[in-house]
Design a protein around this nucleic acid. Structure first.
Lengths: 295, 295
DNA sequence: TCTATTTGATAATTCATAGTTATTAAATAC
DNA sequence: GTATTTAATAACTATGAATTATCAAATAGA
């Protein structure tokens, strides 16, 4: 009668909170549905708080449940990281940092960073995950990532942002486009072309910057396609579905039948920044940040 | 054979880590000693890491165990706070903030703060705990406190510090001390008296400041007693065991047979500051800080 | 309107395992 | 050398998590 909350409850709760469906949650947890029902009910009893509203055929979170979901995610992520760290410490290694990054950082920044880290902290493991700007922020806040590489100019309270790489933009044209490096004077020459851009959602910063480049040249671009993958953008240009403006670094690493014209004289820059949580408890990150902030 | 870590393990682990004694830990947990032994052993199996070194008659933590202890404290405190918040949200209240403070803040700052809070956020509960400077910092870092009131000029990374009250110092003398308000010219007049100070450990900032006041007057005080309670300091002065220099605000609220001479002309000030963790996840604190930072 | 299907809750049962008692071996203390 | 204290081990018990079987309520489709 006098039960205690256990991690089991949290794991079940999270499954139900995400699925909003007891049977599906049960399947995901590899237990039977009544097991989930009784445990959630017990949990509500222990916490003396209703977490779900079930009106037969529909399950949804109460405000308290909503709050708990965030906290449980945080706790479980933190715990997962603690377990990893612990094992590494036990084995005499030091730690792990989990890095999120935009695809466009893979050309130069990330590889250099990893080499530097390896050299200075040979016992710190790194794990990499490619994620959009938007996905990295909550992952860092909830301790799923330690460090992110984004193109953003503002981040929520509690996070720190530091620019690490400034790149010019380049115009991307099909191989047989009439305009070439010699003939190029200013961006106004392609005012009537269709544009292919990275989607706003993936990187609002990038999107706004490209628009401002065109505005400065006195026209509003006609955006025909949007994509989240550089590969796709280049492929679309190759197939003459439009032209693009992308960070110059992206031209390396893709085998594409397109030509690049670097827009050196344009003042806008593609800024890649590091983001991390100021009070991240990962001791490995602390060491790394000391190094990274010096570079 | 394929167990999972549960909160139970953490609670047992913490008991053993603190007692460094299986039987005592078992007593504290109200279970039998073999129960603790098996669970800790199981835990080490799950985490694949040795947490304790027991060489018959002595138990101590491994480095990994040391690390885990800190994390477990953090997680359990965070959890405790989450449970409270959750219940309050469920009941329609908003939250609770836990405040630590130095005794000397109780005279004016804390009461005013509480009144302001009550007025602006009637549904935020507050809990108060009197703690030394030194004890408040780790309590805030490990989510045991949300807000602290300290006399410090520096705090560890991740914490924020904001001065909220500056007070002059006052000389505290026995009622029948030859020096009085009229005859007082400068602190050099008591250079040969014995001094009673708050202990360095309790407030290094205060200690250094008092020494600098004396230094400025050209002498080094002869410190005969140190104490952590204002009550004690005053009692010692009353009994002519020495004189003291304390923040002026302390003269209110104690019924003591001592006299105060305010050192208005001295430039040093007793600075009371708020401390909090920048990325504290307590939603109630966020509201309060918005208010407090405006005052 | 009637049936079939799906939902989460409940009841009875089973089974895993946390915690118990009893005991041991090793390390101190006297 | 004996007595006491330590944590670990073994055998057992009993709590409670999870299972199967079932139900009532809600929806969907005819």
């Amino acid at each position: 009668m006098n039960y205690q909350i256990e991690l089991r409850h949290f794991i079940y709760f999270l499954a139900v909170a995400e699925e909003l469906h007891y049977r599906k949650a049960a399947e995901r947890l590899f237990i039977s549905q009544p097991g989930v029902s009784t445990q959630i009910k017990q949990m509500e009893g222990i916490l003396q708080t209703q977490l779900f509203i079930r009106d037969k055929k529909k399950v949804r979170l109460t405000p308290a449940g909503e709050f708990l979901k965030g906290e449980v995610e945080f706790i479980l992520n933190h715990l997962e990281q603690t377990k990893k760290q612990l094992k590494l410490i036990g084995e005499g290694h030091l730690g792990e940092i989990r890095i999120g990054f935009l695809g466009s950082a893979m050309q130069n920044v990330i590889p250099n960073l990893l080499l530097d880290l390896k050299e200075n902290f040979p016992f710190i493991h790194t794990s990499l995950e490619e994620l959009s700007n938007r996905a990295q922020i909550p992952a860092i806040l909830s301790d799923k990532l330690d460090l992110g590489f984004v193109r953003l100019s503002r981040v929520p309270k509690g996070l720190k942002l530091k620019p690490v790489f400034e790149d010019t933009f380049s115009l991307v044209l099909p191989k047989d486009h009439p305009l070439d490096m010699k003939g190029f004077k200013n961006i106004g020459q392609v005012a009537t072309d269709d544009f292919i851009l990275f989607s706003q959602d993936y990187s609002p910063q990038y999107y706004d910057t490209v628009l401002s480049i065109c505005e400065d040249a006195g026209f509003t671009p006609n955006v025909s396609h949007k994509s989240v993958h550089a590969q796709t953008v280049f492929k679309l240009v190759e197939n003459k579905l439009g032209i693009a403006i992308v960070p110059t670094a992206l031209q390396y690493g893709f085998q594409m039948k397109v030509k690049f014209i670097e827009l050196e004289q344009i003042e806008q820059r593609a800024v890649l920044s590091m983001v991390w949580k100021e009070d991240n408890r990962n001791p490995a990150l602390k060491n790394c940040m000391d190094l990274l902030l010096k570079l």
